[in-house]
Design a protein around this nucleic acid. Structure first.
Lengths: 156, 156
DNA sequence: GTCTATACATGGATAGAC
DNA sequence: GTCTATCCATGTATAGAC
């Protein structure tokens, strides 16, 4: 069953505030007003703002990980890709930017721990996709196309 | 020749600060320290922070428009696409997010005028790409592929 | 666990001297 | 056009009563 504790409500509303306004775009007052508590109560649960965003990102990563692992690896690869897409599109249906898309904008103000969470999140998806595409190679009889427009290699 | 007036330095450094920290992530103090003037001097040139970001975005849009129009429409379409990509990749070589990629994160705090600038910027690129792809149709003998994975149409 | 009260820093902005 | 000085709102955070 759902957890309706104040702590959990704080996390949920904070997640929404971050997606809408960015990490620097909301205050403890904003969050307290939404949940119906004072800022000092938020500090009781999350001493610093960094602790709050850490928990928000932790839950987001956990959910995303569960969704990835829930995809049956025996299904056709295209079907697996579609299921993956289906979970990614969730935020889009809400007309919102996902957490992992919003947080990087304020990355210089995030605690190191949260930056590591973000890195892990992206690597998780990258590795999942890479594994899927590797498996697709024998099916197509050739390597999958990598973006190789002129600019891709011109790094200095 | 380059304009080295204080006003222009403010715009350039503000552009950089926005790309790195976001609109909400830097202060007039930060900017003043970089340029070597006091915050009150910034207010002389740009009474409100919204005026500053407007000028930053105005110059960015203008530059982007010039780059688009500089592409010779008689070149092969792939070559045109590559030239377009080449100008877009500029920020990436600096390991930075481009202005139009960063500002939307703080869109709820931007003046309406800047939101309109952003909308116009994206529409400009969309229309340029659309025109290019339309011209590509006869070359390939069929309509160009639109992203139509399962999720694309499932809007409610 | 939540509150009131408050501390303390920062941020945007203005007034007026030079 | 730039400065000093200052205002006032906001933001994070803490102390201590209940």
């Amino acid at each position: 069953m759902k957890d309706h504790s104040v702590r959990e409500e704080l996390v949920q509303h904070a997640s929404r505030l971050i997606r809408r306004r960015g990490y620097n775009g909301f205050s403890y007052r904003d969050l307290g007003d939404l949940v119906g508590v004072k800022t000092s109560s938020i500090h009781y649960h999350f001493p610093a703002k960094g602790d709050l965003v850490f928990e928000v990102m932790r839950q987001y990563s956990e959910m995303s990980s569960l969704q990835l692992n829930a995809i049956n690896a025996d299904l056709p690869l295209v079907e697996q890709a579609n299921q993956h897409m289906h979970s990614l599109r969730y935020d889009i249906t809400l007309n919102e930017i996902c957490l992992a898309g919003m947080l990087p904008a304020d990355v210089l103000d995030l605690p190191d721990a949260v930056r590591l969470q973000l890195r892990a999140y992206f690597e998780m998806h990258e590795q999942w996709l890479d594994a899927l595409l590797q498996r697709a190679v024998p099916e197509r009889g050739q390597a999958y196309p990598v973006p190789t427009l002129a600019f891709a290699k011109e790094t200095e």
